[in-house]
Design a protein around this nucleic acid. Structure first.
Lengths: 215, 215
DNA sequence: CGGGAAATTGACAATGCTCAAGAGTGGTGG
DNA sequence: CCACCACTCTTGAGCATTGTCAATTTCCCG
């Protein structure tokens, strides 16, 4: 059984006992499954849908010709992405780990739904603007602290984070090299601010220390 | 006669001869005038309006406790700003130079207008995401080139730019110090890519060279 | 267990920042 | 109208932070 099938099956098992988790959108579409690294859409592709993360995680990014990458957003369950001003995608979107995505065709989004969409778009805008401050005016340590706090808050203040994304992903999100990300995390660990129980896991020990750092 | 009154008077004088310039929005509201440096709104203020630049230029920014500033956007004539997810402003907005702003109360924006608003919000989102790439993964020279090209394109491809904003503004927009901005501009001038006819003016001489740099 | 990818760590280099001094502008008042 | 003055911009020198390159270790996952 392939990994994503395993996940899919476990999702449905869980859904059978937790009806809220399986709540369907008004149009009744079922989520589509993507395994780790799978492309959801590519830059230049025609855009005609909106995407909502059901479970898993997504990275949305742009590439430069020389291979530099900027991840503009990580999307967690419940979050929506794929807004475009025209009919073409200007970004790549990939599943970071086994991920379920609910896809809504844009044709269903005319009329009333445009109004419902505005808050989601504004949410993305606020996130992007917050991110601008981090990239423009924060040191490496401040960026890492802000990232950990953001990820924690977006998971309801959870202190044990399963980040899913690699150091390369984090670096390309924060505008840092993987080595710098690793060094900052190590320094945080040495100071007892966080623990790194496993490769992709982070536990926040001194929350206030992180908040002080995030400035 | 105070500066902004002078400006306002000159605007109306000009308007008398150029009806197009005095064109009023459908709701008939007249623009409000702000002199250079005047605050349009402040972080933490209650937000109940949307703003459209009629003439002049605006900077929207956030401040950190230690004085670091990140300008998230410059707004030029015809562009709209002030989108918020809740009823509080999360940014400061100031006039860069003598500026006219059309203010629309949010109460007028319920219903149908929400749909009309979405494209404007998405436009802001795209700009912010583009800006993320610049701040995260571009060198100082690439940032400056991207900035000049963006300003030029937003003015219809004009090659002689009157930037209005100071080096400090540009630095806080690009995540660079004023000295670095100045040095990069000087290097561009030495290479014959641009000319700097006066303090706030830039003339693009080798457009392609800038485009190559912007990567 | 073992292979391989990811992460960590170290040494060095480069980019951009800070501090400081000097030059150019443009606005203001005499 | 001109000269001054304050402010911004420019330029230089030294330094700090972060990036690059490389070696080593750790951690998964078969």
């Amino acid at each position: 059984m392939a990994l994503h099938e395993e996940i899919q099956a476990s999702f449905y098992r869980k859904a059978a006992f937790e009806p809220g988790l399986a709540a369907r959108p008004a149009n009744g579409e079922a989520p589509t499954f993507f395994s780790a690294g799978a492309e959801i859409y590519a830059q230049g592709e025609k855009s005609s849908s909106l995407y909502t993360v059901e479970f898993g995680a997504v990275r949305v990014y742009r590439l430069l010709a020389d291979g530099r990458r900027q991840i503009s957003a990580f999307l967690l369950p419940g979050e929506m992405f794929g807004f475009e001003t025209d009919t073409t995608h200007h970004f790549f979107a990939e599943a970071i780990c086994a991920t379920g995505i609910r896809i809504q065709r844009a044709t269903l989004l005319q009329g009333d739904l445009a109004g419902a969409l505005l808050p989601m778009a504004l949410q993305s805008l606020v996130r992007a603007q917050e991110h601008l401050l981090v990239l423009g005016r924060h040191s490496a340590a401040e960026r890492a602290a802000a990232f950990l706090l953001d990820m924690s808050e977006r998971q309801g203040g959870l202190r044990r984070l399963d980040l899913q994304m690699s150091r390369a992903d984090i670096g390309d999100y924060l505008g840092l090299s993987i080595e710098t990300v690793s060094r900052v995390f190590s320094r945080f660990r040495q100071k007892g601010i966080i623990r790194l129980p496993n490769l992709r896991g982070v536990e926040i020990v001194k929350l206030q220390a992180l908040k002080d750092l995030a400035a």
